[in-house]
């Protein structure tokens, strides 16, 4: 479903983020990408989202070459890929509801559909009562739930979670990971990057380890080894 074909990203001769990465991700997989800071995890995610271009190699999403998408087609592609980040990236002047509905409005969905879908995802992540709160009125865990709700609202094929628990306490970390597993059970592919050992060991799913921009390990039922 997602295929990294000999992908390299070189920022400068002394700063190589990725080097000849080959990686295949199957539909409905739950894959964790681990590695130390600077190993290339975030670069990998950015390339998949079309936020950055590879220096060499190709990134495919099904039959689509992500970096050959035109500016006009990129939004529709991004609505098929939900993303969650360590720093939440919520729109500060929009309420939880509006943060989730924004992309749906842009896609031209009707008010009824939006209302129904947003309520459903808010229920799924467990913060129905906070729909009309602004991000600054929410706790870290609640913000990340809104971000996850936003990511899944468009029913994407893939959820990318880039260190989603980096800013959360163990309790919230546990619940966010459980939420991602639930989303995976509902049929979405989940790509998780993290350097939280407990999270990886608790998941017991595929783990890809990056080191210095290369894939050094790819285990089916991986444990955190570094």
């Amino acid at each position: 479903m997602i295929y990294f074909d000999h992908v390299s990203k070189v920022y400068s001769p002394t700063s190589v983020a990725l080097e000849g990465v080959n990686l295949t991700i199957e539909p409905k997989e739950f894959i964790s990408i681990v590695g130390q800071s600077g190993a290339g995890k975030t670069t990998l995610i950015k390339l998949l989202l079309g936020e950055d271009r590879p220096t060499a190699g190709k990134v495919f999403f099904e039959s689509i070459n992500v970096h050959e998408l035109s500016a006009k087609d990129l939004p529709a592609f991004r609505r098929r890929v939900g993303a969650v980040f360590q720093d939440f990236r919520l729109l500060p002047t929009k309420t939880a509801f509006e943060n989730i509905s924004f992309a749906m409005e842009s896609a031209g969905m009707s008010e009824e559909e939006i209302e129904a879908d947003v309520t459903q995802v808010l229920d799924l992540v467990g913060i129905v009562g906070k729909a009309w709160h602004f991000p600054h009125e929410l706790s870290g865990g609640e913000k990340q739930r809104v971000a996850i709700a936003r990511a899944i609202a468009m029913r994407p094929d893939v959820i990318i979670a880039d260190e989603p628990t980096g800013n959360l306490d163990p309790m919230n970390t546990f619940e966010i990971i459980k939420l991602l597993e639930k989303i995976n059970d509902l049929g979405s592919t989940v790509i998780l990057t993290t350097h939280n050992k407990d999270v990886i060991n608790g998941l017991n799913r595929r783990v890809v380890t990056l080191e210095g921009g290369r894939v050094v390990r790819d285990d089916k039922n991986g444990r955190y080894v570094l």
């Binding site: 939004p75 529709a76 609505r79 919520l90 729109l91 924004f102 992309a103 842009s106 896609a107 468009m154």
Partner: peptide, 16 residues
Amino acid sequence: EEISIMRLVGAKNSYI
């Protein structure tokens, strides 16, 4: 920053 978030969640440029 907000504009880049809007783009990231797949909003169309004209809609932003």
